[in-house]
């Protein structure tokens, strides 16, 4: 069965027709061409598809698109303003918070969600917020550093 829904994605209203079983990650990647979030496991275990749904971080592979009519979605593609990186992205760039980059979109979005709700998280808060985002390359230390620097630079 198909459903007509409207999503506000990175500030733009999108009128979409989705099948009942279609997940948000599929809709974002296949219908809207927003391929920043990845399909790393499609079972909510890796975090590579993390996006903000009404300001909460979710695994987009665990959300049925038909159920979120009228919701607001923020993806990695909406973070930078033109060529100007968001301070969080800049911090990841400056402090080597990525290697292969496959987890990066989800990682940055989870960190972004954290900084939305906590202006100056301590290291434990950062670890808790990012525990659902697996990274096999960096060893995480530079990711923690990037988030810490970003939270300081906002002041």
């Amino acid at each position: 069965m198909n459903h007509n829904i409207t999503l506000t994605v990175n500030g733009v209203d999108q009128h979409l027709t989705v099948a009942s079983h279609q997940t948000l990650v599929r809709v974002l990647r296949e219908q809207l061409g927003l391929t920043g979030g990845k399909a790393g496991c499609l079972s909510g275990q890796c975090g590579t598809c993390s996006v903000l749904l009404n300001n909460d971080i979710v695994n987009a592979c665990m959300v049925l698109a038909a159920e979120i009519d009228g919701c607001e979605i923020q993806t990695i593609e909406g973070l930078a303003q033109g060529d100007r990186l968001h301070p969080l992205q800049q911090a990841f760039l400056d402090h080597g918070g990525m290697q292969c980059g496959f987890c990066t979109s989800g990682m940055v979005m989870s960190a972004y969600a954290l900084l939305q709700r906590s202006s100056r998280p301590d290291e434990n808060e950062i670890r808790s917020a990012l525990v659902g985002n697996l990274c096999r390359c960096t060893g995480y230390a530079d990711i923690i550093k990037s988030v810490q620097v970003a939270s300081r630079s906002r002041r």
């Binding site: 391929t35 990845k38 930078a80 990186l85 290697q99 980059g101």
Partner: peptide, 21 residues
Amino acid sequence: FPRIEAQLKLTGTARYLDDLQ
């Protein structure tokens, strides 16, 4: 130096296999 492709990876515009159309 930061990785030369860092910006692409941080903005979701780096293209991996499943991202190619």
